Simulated assay, not measured.
Amino acid sequence: MKKTIELNGNSFDVPAEIENVQALLGHLNLADRIVIVEMNKDILAKEAYDKPINDRDQIEIIHFVGGG
């Protein structure tokens, strides 16, 4: 069963196999990047990326981009 979350301010359907934040980062091709994740207005430590994603959760992901 898919879930719908708010991801960076937009509605986003999460496939059923994506059960936690770490899996979501992998799905978004962000697993190998330095990111900051906020879930329901709380910043998550990397050790908490196994936290389950629930329907209607609010998730903000900020990743850093290099350049000049």
Rank of each mutant, 00 (worst) to 15 (best):
M1G: 11
M1Q: 06
K2M: 09
K3Q: 03
I5W: 01
I5Q: 02
L7C: 10
L7M: 09
N8R: 10
N8T: 12
G9T: 09
S11L: 15
F12Q: 06
F12M: 10
D13M: 12
D13E: 15
D13L: 12
V14K: 01
P15N: 05
A16G: 05
E17L: 06
E17G: 02
I18C: 02
I18M: 01
E19N: 12
N20Y: 00
N20E: 01
V21Y: 00
Q22I: 12
Q22V: 07
L24M: 02
L24D: 00
G26K: 15
H27I: 05
H27G: 08
L28Q: 02
L28S: 03
N29H: 13
N29T: 04
N29P: 00
L30P: 07
L30K: 07
L30I: 11
L30D: 08
A31H: 08
A31L: 13
A31P: 04
D32P: 01
D32F: 08
R33M: 11
R33C: 13
I34Q: 11
V35I: 12
V35Q: 09
V35A: 08
I36H: 07
I36M: 13
I36L: 15
V37E: 00
E38D: 12
M39Q: 12
K41Q: 11
K41C: 09
D42H: 13
I43W: 10
L44C: 12
A45S: 15
A45Q: 14
A45W: 13
K46V: 14
K46Y: 10
E47C: 10
E47G: 11
A48H: 13
A48V: 07
Y49N: 11
D50E: 12
D50C: 13
I53P: 03
I53T: 08
N54T: 04
D55R: 05
R56C: 09
R56I: 01
D57W: 07
Q58R: 14
Q58Y: 08
I59Q: 02
I61T: 03
I62C: 05
H63A: 08
H63W: 15
F64C: 00
F64S: 02
F64P: 01
V65G: 08
G66F: 07
G68S: 06
G68W: 05
